[in-house]
């Protein structure tokens, strides 16, 4: 009995981490053209600029690594938001961060800056996420309740959605709308290591902020008063999680577009495995998210559909049935 109480989720975390790394390997091995991986690896390590090494290091590796980073961010943020709002339907976009990140990228695109320098699009997305964060603090700052936070999120989301549609509507180029709609569906195709280096520090900071909130989220299981009585400052917790989500999800959306369902479904699936403990759920959801995104991205390349399906479409196709079965089960239990 005592041993079980003491048992951390280390085993589960390790298993999911190993699976995520394997999925990363699978992602590197998958591609559209046959690639001699051994040759590519030897060339890359020897510093030879062969075609194989180029494809491995500049195209497949960034794709796999970004898949891992973005998946981890989405899973972790989903778990953090569900824990903060104590609502299993919360997801990373619930406070408006992803909507504003998408708007930021779209704005960059229409201002023509996207063509001017290479990382304009993700930088615009990150700027959008930051603006959302500032708005959130202004709207739901000191002493406001969780409901205010959700309402602020809804307001920001609708605003960002409307502005994005407006941008599409006013688009000078009849084809731009199509392009941006496809971009918004989310994809990891043809991203580069530059993208990885841009988002890595932001995501790491965001992960750190959210993972550090684990004990507070555990305490929040018992409601806000009890959490406060256990020595947690809820205002600081909210700020910490909003900022963490902005850094992680903002940069994820900025490089890959919106990939839905991951942050919703992963914490759901893993929650029973950590005994429904909100704090323990964070890290495992990160690994679970990485696994799901890498798997879905591999699927986009395995499915005989060309051009490849958008990642957001595939995660939704995987996620929606899961959610339906979940609702079905809940209904039966009720």
């Amino acid at each position: 009995m005592k041993a079980r109480l003491a048992m951390p989720a280390a085993g589960l975390n390790a298993a999911l981490a190993v699976l995520a790394v394997l999925a990363c390997g699978l992602s590197v091995a998958l591609g559209y053209a046959p690639l001699d991986l051994g040759q590519a690896l030897r060339d890359a390590l020897a510093g030879r600029e062969s075609i194989e090494a180029l494809v491995l290091t500049e195209i497949r590796l960034p794709r796999a690594v970004l898949g891992m980073l973005v998946g981890f961010s989405l899973g972790l943020t989903g778990a953090a938001m569900q824990g903060l709002l104590r609502n299993p339907l919360a997801e990373p976009g619930v406070i408006g961060i992803s909507g504003m990140a998408a708007l930021g990228a779209v704005a960059m695109f229409y201002s023509g800056l996207a063509g001017a320098f290479s990382l304009a699009l993700p930088l615009g997305g990150i700027a959008g996420a930051l603006i959302a964060t500032i708005l959130l603090f202004a709207l739901a700052g000191r002493g406001a309740s969780m409901t205010t936070l959700i309402l602020a999120g809804v307001a920001i989301n609708s605003f960002a959605g409307a502005m994005t549609s407006l941008a599409l509507n006013l688009s000078p180029n009849p084809y731009a709308a199509t392009e941006i709609v496809f971009w918004l569906m989310g994809s990891l195709a043809d991203r580069s290591l530059d993208h990885v280096w841009l988002v890595l520090p932001l995501m790491l900071a965001g992960w750190g902020l959210m993972l550090a909130a684990a004990p507070a989220l555990d305490a929040l299981t018992l409601g806000e008063d009890t959490a406060t009585s256990l020595g947690f400052n809820l205002m600081r917790l909210r700020a910490q999680l909003v900022l963490g989500a902005a850094l992680a999800v903002g940069s994820a959306v900025a490089v890959t577009g919106a990939i839905g369902f991951v942050g919703l479904i992963v914490p759901h699936l893993l929650r029973p495995l950590v005994g429904h403990r909100a704090g323990r759920l964070l890290l495992v959801s990160g690994f679970g998210g990485a696994l799901l995104v890498l798997g879905a991205d591999s699927l986009t390349r395995l499915l005989p559909v060309r051009p490849e399906l958008k990642l957001g479409v595939v995660t939704a196709m995987i996620g929606a049935p899961f959610l339906f079965s979940l609702i079905w089960r809940l209904r039966r239990e009720a």
Binding site: Y32, I51, I59, R60, E308
Partner: peptide, 8 residues
């Protein structure tokens, strides 16, 4: 068309 196809 994926970039890696173009290159390979």
């Amino acid at each position: 068309i994926p970039l890696e196809t173009v290159i390979l």
